[in-house]
């Protein structure tokens, strides 16, 4: 299958290794990965803040970038939800509505794509350590991704999954919310990190790098030695 990679802007700038892990996993499965270079940001920051005209301007870039793609796969529940769930709303009544719907239909979150589209759960990965998994809210509730990452982690040799009590609780990122209401966002982050700590895990894993940025921010502030990794990085480990 020819798979177009959708790399969210902050993954592009801050966590390129996450994108490479996705490439490695998909290529090892024998698929051909391309990266449409015209892509930038999906438009979620202005969309979530209420500036839909500006969001559409950014989103049109994505529509153009992925126009010829067969399937689009991205390593972020949040940014994929933007395309899959919110583009059709954002473009309702717009001349590009149909195109937005087409992109929504062919775009997939990474773990969901592996399990539900490709039907793979064992990637031959090896990762020694105790891991706890954080469900990014958009992946969990907009896309219904819950079992998929766990099915994938269950087949990683050497990995022990320790569920945290607050796995489904929001980390408090929420895009511009994190800087508009830093005290509330931080309080949520504290709840999340306390729950991570409680499990005794060495690594916190998620399918969303934006959540991990928020969680990492708190763990670093607390000088915690717990590592944070994207699911793709774990699945690409040998």
């Amino acid at each position: 299958m020819r798979i177009s990679l959708f790399v969210p802007c902050f993954v592009d700038q801050i966590y390129p290794q996450v994108a490479w892990s996705v490439v490695r996993v998909l290529e090892e499965l024998g698929h051909q990965v391309d990266f449409p270079e015209g892509q930038s940001c999906c438009g979620q920051p202005p969309f979530n803040t209420g500036y839909w005209d500006e969001a559409r301007t950014a989103a049109r870039v994505a529509l153009a970038a992925f126009r010829d793609s067969e399937v689009v796969v991205g390593p972020s529940g949040s940014c994929v939800a933007m395309m899959k769930v919110f583009y059709p709303q954002l473009f309702k009544g717009d001349s590009q509505e149909l195109e937005a719907r087409e992109l929504a239909a062919k775009t997939h979150e990474f773990s969901s794509f592996l399990v539900n589209t490709l039907g793979v759960t064992d990637l031959g990965a090896k990762f020694e350590g105790k891991v706890t998994f954080h469900d990014g809210c958009h992946g969990l509730r907009e896309l219904g991704v819950k079992k998929e990452p766990r099915a994938l982690l269950a087949n990683v040799r050497g990995l022990e999954l320790l569920e945290m009590a607050e796995a489904e609780s929001c980390c408090g990122f929420g895009g511009t919310f994190a800087v508009k209401f830093p005290t509330i966002s931080t309080a949520m982050d504290e709840v999340k990190c306390a729950s991570i700590l409680e499990t005794g895990a060495d690594v916190v894993v998620s399918n969303d790098s934006s959540c991990l940025m928020q969680i990492r921010g708190m763990l670093d502030k607390q000088k915690s030695t717990i590592r944070s990794l994207h699911l793709a990085e774990v699945l690409a480990s040998r």
Binding site: V7, V11, Q13, P16, T183, R216, G217, M218, K221
Partner: peptide
């Protein structure tokens, strides 16, 4: 400051995925 008062901010990667892809592929 709205971020860094309570959380650490990550560093940008030395080069972006865009640049790395262009170079390697």
């Amino acid at each position: 400051i709205a971020w860094t008062r309570s959380r650490a901010f990550p560093n940008l990667a030395p080069t972006s995925f865009h640049e790395q892809w262009k170079k390697s592929r």
